[in-house]
Write a protein that binds this DNA or RNA. Structure first.
Length: 394
DNA sequence: ATGTTC
């Protein structure tokens, strides 16, 4: 199927895979990439080195098409990564007290939502009680320390301080994006939308609202976490990795879909590893047309959700997973999620980033080490007052 | 991924 070249490979469908020959990519993900590349109106399809199977369509991929495919963006419209420079000196952070202070980020924010929405020009939605909540899956808020600076000039240009902690937030549009996708799928199935149609305009308008909501969500998550720690911070970047947008492509107006693909045309981005590995702050190259102006958005899952517990529980108890190989601490009181997001469930981020660098798509500015990863305090269904769900078969 | 799934 693939040529035995070292760098990017051309698949039989015409899709491009940005990965060297010995980088492991699951067969199912490649099948999904090839199938998607053959959809009507598809001009180009790219699998990034974190490519892994999704629900029908692959994650870690970018697609350029003459039409709009809402299902390619998926349910978490606007999901992305935001990075803050905090005021907290690395040597001043004591993990135990910090962890004790980080409580209750799952519930509705208790501040003045109306004022906050006005301040950020955010229209009200039916999902605003979830504003400022991280959510589940691979979402997190992580306090990080700079491990190594490889490009001092660019690092300094970003106004980053290697002595002070960073905060990386990965979250999206929660129930809002889900409802937007469900609405369009209910009406049009997985069919492509003509960009000039009323259906496309309605979808795009709601999609753009979800982008704003998701960005605001990351902002409020950071605010809540920083308030809990009694510190302040400034945002250095915020990028969406799930979206569709109109692009001018060699003189033609086309639609670029990113599904788990970081933009290469919006300045530096963070490509996070797992909670047990480094993350990479990278500078995208000037010309990234090869990868549809996109980069990997993370390490990429190696094991499917729900698979990790059975694979790991014999050798690692839940408590073992609350500290990591790099000395980081983890807050995750949902046992299934604790296993699902174990470092072993992910591919190696070093290889993923090396594939991008070797393809000429980016260079590394700095590496970041996880200090404290916040996932969830309690699964929603086990919060006080909630009924314990029955287990086992009927 | 999901105010999820009983």
């Amino acid at each position: 199927m693939t040529e035995s070249t070292q760098g990017p490979a051309r698949l039989s469908s015409g899709a491009t895979l940005i990965a060297c020959a010995d980088s492991w990519i699951e067969g199912e993900a490649l099948r999904q990439l090839e199938q998607t590349a053959e959809l009507p109106g598809m001009r180009a399809a790219v699998g990034l080195p974190d490519l892994h199977p999704g629900k029908g369509y692959p994650i870690g991929a970018a697609f350029l098409a003459a039409r709009i495919y809402p299902a390619l963006v998926g349910n978490d419209i606007g999901c992305g990564m935001a990075l803050w420079q905090t005021d907290l000196l690395i040597r001043k952070l004591k993990p135990e007290p910090a962890m004790a202070r980080l409580q209750g980020l799952e519930g509705p924010w208790e501040g003045d939502l109306e004022a906050w929405r006005a301040e950020h020009s955010l229209a009200p939605t039916d999902f605003d009680t979830a504003l400022g909540t991280i959510g589940g899956g691979n979402h997190f808020a992580e306090i990080q320390a700079v491990e190594e600076i490889l490009d001092p000039d660019t690092f300094a240009g970003l106004a980053l301080d290697a002595e002070r902690l960073l905060l990386l937030v990965h979250s999206g549009s929660r129930g809002l994006g889900e409802s937007i996708l469900r609405t369009v799928i209910d009406q049009h199935g997985h069919a492509e939308l003509d960009p000039t149609s009323a259906a496309a305009q309605a979808y795009l308008s709601r999609h753009d609202q979800a982008l704003d909501w998701a960005e605001a969500n990351r902002r409020l998550i950071a605010t809540r976490l920083l308030d809990a720690l009694g510190t302040d911070a400034e945002r250095r970047l915020d990028v969406w990795h799930n979206l569709v947008q109109a692009v001018d492509w060699k003189g033609e107006r086309l639609w670029l879909h990113r599904k788990g693909a970081a933009p290469a045309d919006r300045g530096p981005v963070v490509i996070p590893g797992s909670r047990g590995t480094l993350s990479y702050l990278v500078q995208p190259s000037r010309d990234c047309d090869l990868s549809l102006r996109s980069l990997a958005h993370g390490a990429g899952r190696k094991w499917k959700r729900g698979e990790a517990r059975a694979r790991l529980s014999a050798r690692q108890r839940p408590d073992d997973l609350l500290t990591t190989a790099l000395g980081g601490r983890v807050i995750c009181e949902d046992k299934e999620l604790l296993y699902d997001e174990a470092p072993e469930a992910y591919k190696g981020i070093d290889r993923v980033v090396a594939d991008l660098v070797e393809a000429g798509l980016c260079s590394v500015i700095a590496t970041l080490r996880p200090v404290l990863t916040y996932k969830v305090r309690r699964p929603a269904h086990r919060q006080p007052g909630a009924r314990k769900p029955k287990r086992g078969r009927a």
